[in-house]
Amino acid sequence: MKCVEVLDSKGWQLFHSVPFLIYANDKQWISHLQGDVQDVFNPQKNPIASHGESRIFVLLDNQGKPIGRIAAFIDHEANSHLEYPIGGIGFFECIENNEAANLLFETAENWLREKGMQAVDGPVNFGGRDKYWGLLVKGFYPPLFQENYNPSYYASFFEANKYIAWEQILSIKGDLNDLDVSRLRAVCDRIRQSNEVVVELYDPKKKDKYAVDFCEIYNAAFGRFEHFKPAEPEKIKAILEESKLILDPLLLAICYINGQPAAFCATFPDINPLLKSARGKLSWWKIPGLIFRLKTAKKLFIKGTGFAIHPDFKTKGAFALIIEFMASPALSQKYQYYFLTTVRAHNREAVSLYFKAGKMQVDRVHIGYRKALQPNVEVVPNEFMEV
């Protein structure tokens, strides 16, 4: 067996072929879009790649056939704010063979050590923490869009290679019909009596304003958490532009109280069930068919960050107003289940807020692992929940 670096289109073909070997008999699996995965490592598509570096490897067996893959990467800008430099590994896939898995880890970790990294996180994304993040350990259902899915035996690979379960990542499932609006209705009415309240749906013509107001709420709500990266209006506008064919304005809204951005709801239709037949390749001529199926689908899941409340409005009823919006008949007629994804279990404030919305349950659990690459580094796990 040997690891080879992906350097050209042929290498990428080998890289993308590995999951089709691993999941050949798994009817639950849905391939990531291969173009999306490659864009993660393209500096023109991913700003983090422009100030970071990466190496991508494929493991070949003795007959030259691909049997595993792994990517290793470094975000130099993020490391400038950390106690010690941390690298990442992701997009890991491997046959059920300990020797093969060990060689993949060793190859990636050796490169990271050469670059001066003192620890490594995995499996994670070379980019936003809202996708391609964590190892699935509970809830082996068909994956949501850009959600990691893997065989259960992968956990033993990580743990045998001295990776420590460092953070617990939750996907929380709810039913729009179960949102507890009745007890919040009086709160909403009281707020409206003494304040000017507007819940504004996303309008592409007001994209610039939406992006600025979204960032104001997001940065204020999450800025105190570890690994926080400020949302920037230009990046939000780019996401909205890239998603314009699939986004539903009913799922994107900002609540204003007395003209100030107080809370947002940010979710998207989960298009993954519509992508299963694409097998990782969404050619341009397939897009009209995807859009048609999206518009005519009877019931799709909702997936997203969920909602956030500006700290200045936590005690002023903004939460009640957002829940009232999510429980609107227009939404429940088109959707039923929603998933609030990549929720960190140690962010107890967010977890508590989400569960106040109604009958919620932890549907899937991913684990983010961390491994010390130097003897002076101690890995201290975050707080986990019983699920």
Rank of each mutant, 00 (worst) to 15 (best):
K2P: 03
E5C: 10
V6L: 09
L14M: 12
F15H: 02
L21D: 00
L21H: 04
Y23M: 06
N25R: 14
N25I: 05
W29T: 06
H32R: 05
L33Q: 07
D36E: 14
Q38H: 04
F41Q: 05
N42W: 10
P43L: 07
N46I: 05
S50I: 05
H51T: 14
L60P: 10
P66N: 08
A78E: 11
S80N: 13
E83I: 12
G88S: 05
E93H: 07
C94G: 03
A101Q: 12
F105D: 00
N110L: 10
N110C: 07
L112A: 07
K115F: 04
G116A: 08
D121R: 12
P123E: 04
F126K: 02
K131V: 01
Y132W: 15
W133F: 15
V137S: 03
L144D: 00
F145Y: 13
P151F: 11
P151V: 01
P151R: 11
A155P: 00
W166K: 10
I172A: 01
S182N: 13
Q193P: 01
V199D: 00
L201E: 14
D203T: 04
K207S: 13
Y210E: 02
E216K: 15
E216H: 09
A221C: 06
R224G: 11
H227N: 15
F228M: 11
K229G: 15
A231P: 02
A231V: 06
K235C: 02
I236M: 13
K237C: 11
E241R: 15
Y256Q: 09
Q260L: 13
A262M: 09
I271A: 06
L275D: 00
S277V: 13
G280F: 01
S283I: 09
P288E: 08
P288S: 08
I291P: 01
R293G: 07
K295S: 11
K295L: 14
K298G: 13
F301C: 03
K303M: 03
K303S: 06
T305H: 05
H310W: 08
A318K: 02
A318C: 05
M326Q: 11
S328N: 15
L331R: 15
Y337F: 14
Y337T: 06
Y337C: 02
F339Q: 06
T341Q: 05
R344Y: 10
A345L: 09
R348H: 12
L353Y: 04
Y354G: 00
K356G: 15
M360N: 08
D363Q: 13
V365L: 01
A372F: 14
L373S: 05
V379L: 08
V380M: 02
M385L: 15
E386W: 06
V387W: 08
